[in-house]
Design a protein around this nucleic acid. Sequence first.
RNA 1: GCUGGUGUGGCUCAAUGGCAGAGCAGCUCAUUCGUAAUGAGCAGGUUGUCAGUUCGAUUCUGACCACCAGCUCCA
Length: 647
Amino acid sequence: MNVSLKNGDIIELAAGSSAADAAKALGAGLYKAACAARINGADCDLRTELKDGDALEILTFDDPYGAGAYRHTASHIMAQAVKRLFPEAKLAIGPKTDDGFYYDFDPEKPFTADDLEKIEAEMKKIVKEDLPLERFTMSYEEAKAYYEEKGEIYKLELAAEHAGKGEALSFYKQGEFTELCAGPHLMSTGLVKAFKLTSATGAYWRGSEKNRMLQRIYGTAFPKAAQLEEFLAAREEAKKRDHNRLGRELEFFTTVDYIGQGLPILLPNGARVIQLLQRFVEDEEQKRGWLLTKTPYMAKRELYKISGHWDHYLDGMFVLGDPYDEEKECLALRPMTCPFQYQAYLNKARSYKDLPLRYNETSTLFRNEDSGEMHGLIRVRQFTISEGHLMCRPDQLEQEFKNCLELAIFMLKTVGLYDDVSYRFSQWDPDDREKYIGTPEQWDEAQGIMKNILDDIGLEYKIGVGEAAFYGPKLDIQIKNVFGKEDTLITIQIDQMLAEKFGMEYTDSDGTKKNPYIIHRTSIGCYERTLALLIEKYAGAFPLWLAPEQVRVLPIADRHHDAAKAVADQLDAAGLRVTVDDRSEKLGYKLREARNKRIPYLLVIGDNEAADGTVSVRRRGSEESAVKTVDEFLASALMDVAKKTIW
RNA sequence: GCUGGUGUGGCUCAAUGGCAGAGCAGCUCAUUCGUAAUGAGCAGGUUGUCAGUUCGAUUCUGACCACCAGCUCCA
């Protein structure tokens, strides 16, 4: 039979040949590098049988699907090693991930760092044994008997689930190790060259906290040792940008045991950046027709009963008083701004002519997160968000939603995070009705509207089922931190339920009363989280307009102090954040310190500069310095600040 | 909340069941210096907190608190 290749060549193969056979026929090198196959455009295992006329592409590690097969095989090798060393450990699941793989086990004792080393050593043996992986199928009954005999309770559960689909169950076998698995896999364990087990942690069976916690081992694998080393080095490098270390080191924030978890102290540097962002956001929103409100940080329980927070969010609130004593007044700190800002709308009767009505607020919120959830500035219990709620008519909804998105994108572009985000359309989970208010019809309608808008814009998004707010669907703008963990930076939500609950109406042109649509949105997210991501993005080297200290003047000797102070005064008067390092230290010492603090501009003043009214300008990131007049420097720096230039 | 790890001066880290040590930072003095570390001296600690074991605990045990990674949950 004949099979065509990617480059157009046609090769002749014996009937019944597999993709692996084809790879072998094409050369030993390709066969060794082969990870998976693409037949007539469909990704598949190398063991897939070819038919006459098929178009075949051999996928190597360079292809994401190929890399997945490679790492999935590494995960089987790890599971085999674990079973050899810890026969009592039960097997759960072991998939590939974007940059590696993991496997969940249920061992007698959690794995230690020593265990990981032993497992890794055993994996090396398995690779050396070069065990071929064979694919075969079993009926559900056979699989059930097989796993019952082995006592693999988790595999039994998985087998039963897959059996429902009516197909035979596929297995892969390498040596003594057999695994229920859909594949794809490499042809032999000997092909997995460079790997490393990176961590062992707990993880719930099937991702539900109601289930038993299993032990997960994470690892990664590459065809070449150099690639693995590069990957691990890059990860170490990324961790150096970790805001939770760098943010403390550069004195942006700190935490104190006796204040409590998730309650960071913003030090002058961090507070300054947040102030700058906040002013920028409030000014920009004002230009775009948003009206600033300032509402209370707490309210009586009755408000939250109307909004639904009392029923859906009580665990997440800080309650002042006994929530169950209906006789006494009970207050709660606000976890969201919505019900407060609605009161501004309700202040008087509204006409269709008043809409859209856009309220913004720099709003501090309080959420009683579970103790393990807090993380640096990214996840805290008190935070301040660039909040906004917009009430509009149906005919305005689409344009207003687009405007909110446009504002968010403008903010992201200005601070330099635009290229790092992805979009998630967060929908409700119809199978988990408890979590949400409203009817399926209302959800279908709200989600339908959002889908139309997103598709109309042509936004590329993934869908997050069960990620919606309890009152409506969300467009979440997602970003990853240095550890690759994704969080929501910005959210824009459509809500057609709360207006009714709060009795928010407007009189339409025909004289009838209607509930407005409400858009809940943030323009730059919450300041603490945004600050954290900016610290990581810039490794502490903030763009000039956001830098807590923009300029440091370095006099060479004491006799230059007056000149240095005069320059600093001039810059300060022009609005730059400037300090003078007038310590009796050598220039090199002062420079070193200023560079470590990532100060954008260092101005050196010695005899020459003092004599002719110039400064020797050294810009962050440059090894060169240039002599300029103070006026020249000031003009260019002010221009950079005004333009919010990123360098 | 769950699994595991960590906690020694402001920071980074040593050490030990028997007087807790270094470097950096800080302070003082000297040095007046041209683009990444001048020298000398001084000061700084209830070893996260509280119990327990012990003649003696910073070290061993327990509980709690905080921090870290992951899970779950979320902006």
